[in-house]
């Protein structure tokens, strides 16, 4: 069905445009302005063109942080999307159990991000934390995320999966609930197995919500800051210094606004580019399946 062509619809979009543009455009222009200047202090700056961009692109620590970030976001998507779908499939469908399951599932999502890091510090400390104590004392495996890079990665991944898989599960669950019972009956009459029901009925119907889940998880995991900052501070060494952590190190701790701004813009463009590719690809996959 074709949409009604009418440019007056812009009037309905205008309030959104104004309110988002107010917070979006001026800060973006300011950051672009910083990125081409060397700033010594208030009112003292020199135009340096693309020098900061060149410097940032040649910074090997930035490149290392970038690869670390890709690995992290990749693992996040590979683990959280299928796990979330599995949880949604197993959740109770109606009654008080469904309500209880939904409310409990959402709990990790409602905790401020720095508090998440705090919870996991408390939870994984070998002396006072449950997880830390069980692994170190009960199983006798030395596990310390402040000393071993691998342990730090495992802890950050556990925290991330614990924190965000519920979002994927919530979205997938609501997608599943929107499938009319008639679809399942038809599949049963055709003698479809559970697997083919999933593949040809449930999965295509979850396409829309999974697109939202996939893109939200990609963007937010790529921009992750507060949780690893509180938990590991980027260490041990630089092993969990993700892009945002390195950015803060440059821009705020060393107070290098110019390079920081250039870094931010490069960062922004990477997220934008990948989101655009995923967005296009997921839309195309969807069309192929529903035909």
């Amino acid at each position: 069905m074709e949409k009604w062509p009418d440019n007056k619809a812009w009037l309905l979009v205008l309030p959104v445009f104004v309110i988002v543009a107010f917070s979006a455009i001026i800060p973006l222009l300011t950051v672009i302005n910083y990125s081409v200047q060397d700033i010594f202090g208030p009112g003292q700056s020199v135009f340096v063109g693309v020098d900061w961009f060149r410097e940032m692109l040649q910074d090997y620590r930035l490149r290392e942080a970038l690869w670390r970030q890709f690995l992290f976001s990749g693992l996040v998507l590979i683990i959280e999307i299928p796990l979330g779908v599995l949880i949604a499939l197993a959740m109770p469908k109606r009654g008080w159990k469904a309500s209880a399951a939904l409310v409990t599932l959402a709990l990790p999502l409602l905790i401020p991000w720095n508090t998440i890091g705090t919870i996991w510090i408390i939870f994984t400390r070998p002396d006072i934390g449950l997880l830390g104590a069980v692994i170190n004392n009960l199983l006798g495996i030395p596990f310390d995320h402040t000393a071993s890079p691998l342990d730090a990665w495992i802890t950050v991944m556990l925290m991330e999966v614990w924190h965000w898989t519920p979002l994927v599960a919530l979205l997938a669950y609501s997608g599943l609930r929107a499938i009319p019972e008639a679809y399942y009956q038809a599949a049963r009459i055709d003698g479809a197995s559970a697997w083919s029901t999933f593949l040809y009925v449930q999965l295509p119907k979850m396409r829309g919500v999974l697109t939202i889940a996939f893109l939200l998880r990609f963007m937010d995991s790529f921009l992750i800051y507060a949780e690893p900052f509180v938990l590991t501070g980027g260490g041990p060494g630089n092993s969990t210094t993700f892009l945002s952590l390195y950015l803060v190190k440059i821009a705020l701790l060393q107070f290098d606004l110019g390079p920081g701004a250039a870094f931010s813009l490069i960062y922004f463009i990477i997220v934008l580019l990948f989101s655009f590719i995923f967005y296009q690809a997921l839309q195309r996959v969807g069309k192929g399946e529903t035909v």
């Binding site: 893109l215 705020l252 920081g260 870094f263 960062y267």
Partner: peptide, 18 residues
């Protein structure tokens, strides 16, 4: 949608000024 994609750390300063 792109407004979700900017790293907040550096953008926080212009926000403060704005």
């Amino acid at each position: 949608l792109t407004n979700r994609m900017a790293p907040a750390a550096v953008f926080a300063l212009p926000f403060f000024q704005l």
